[in-house]
Design a protein around this nucleic acid. Structure first.
Ligand code: ZN
Ligand code: ZN
Ligand code: ZN
Ligand code: ZN
Lengths: 168, 168
DNA sequence: ATCGAATATGTTATATTATCACAACTTTGT
DNA sequence: ACAAAGTTGTGATAATATAACATATTCGAT
């Protein structure tokens, strides 16, 4: 009986996720207007699907969820939308999972730390300025010119480790 | 005519790569003996192929290079060897490239920073203690229990940025 | 309003990356 | 010699991602 408890239980608790969603979609629309790029129905729909949870989502999972809403959807449909959303900084690709997650800092800077829970698959994005400063100076010392930085940490999130404690 | 200059030119210069190779293979053999695991001919061969350069290598590239030496080689042959080498900390998987690179710190600790050059595809591994300390405390603050950490930076390495300067 | 360029989507096929399942063989300890 | 554990051979297939080319839509300039 331990199987069903962990993956859906705490995702809905603790915070008003409808706010996460509306904030993300509002920001996305604003940014796209400002930048003169098109947040088309497909792209918006994919963004909504990604924001249904804080869990990492795979491309073919998105495709399956998109199909009922858009029968012509094919892999390219999804990958194109994902490419767009990534370019615009609205989502992140999680390299170590081949998966995607909504970005919490869309408008702003962009060097984030991702904490990826093996248990519930939720991903927490942190800006972690101290880490980023240390990282920048390390990179400078190496004489390297960084174009992109990805820090992906896998492990067990605070919520899941508490649950495990409680359940013994 | 700009095509051939960058990718092979500086790989061989600057350092005695035969030393890199023999050091890596010696360490590997010692570690495997100590740990009571088998560095079989296939595994050793794959490790050698990976160490032929400091460039990231793909699994099917390894397979192609392995086939002439081992006609029965199939994808599983390579992936099994890679799994073993990763488990033993002898190589790293580069998540953002689906590629592999020899580890410079096999015996020791294991949280490394990878600087991945888009130009020459060489990968520099740095232990970056300052970054790792900052990272650990950030992770602690989040109440997260880390199992693995991957920092992958893409950009242009010192050698390649100099060359680009020089060539105008 | 029409035209053309740029952008976005539809569609089919295919490339790339990775795993599974099961049989055969090898190594190791008893 | 035997059994158990580990490794490899082999064929099939799953999962992830891109290419290529036709069609449609958007949008600004005339
Ligand atoms: Zn939320
Ligand atoms: Zn969790
Ligand atoms: Zn070397
Ligand atoms: Zn380089």
């Amino acid at each position: 009986m331990r199987s069903s408890s962990s993956s859906s239980a705490h995702a809905s608790a603790k915070h008003d996720h409808t706010k996460c969603i509306s904030a993300a979609l509002d920001t996305a629309e604003q940014l796209c207007v400002v930048r003169g790029v098109q947040l088309t129905p497909i792209r918006l729909q994919v963004l909504k699907l990604i924001w249904e949870s804080h869990q990492a989502v795979k491309a073919y999972e998105l495709l399956d969820r998109l199909k009922p809403l858009k029968q012509e959807a094919k892999p390219a449909t999804v990958y194109r939308a994902l490419d767009f959303l990534i370019e615009q900084g609205l989502i992140h690709r999680i390299e170590s999972l081949n998966a995607f997650i909504g970005c919490h800092y869309s408008g702003q800077q962009h060097e984030q730390l991702l904490l990826i829970c093996k248990e519930c698959h939720e991903v927490e994005e942190r800006s972690a300025p101290a880490v980023m400063d240390a990282l920048s100076s390390e990179i400078d010392q190496a004489g390297f010119i960084a174009h992109s930085k990805a820090i992906e940490i896998h492990g067990i999130c605070a919520k899941c480790s508490k649950e495990t404690d409680a359940q013994g």
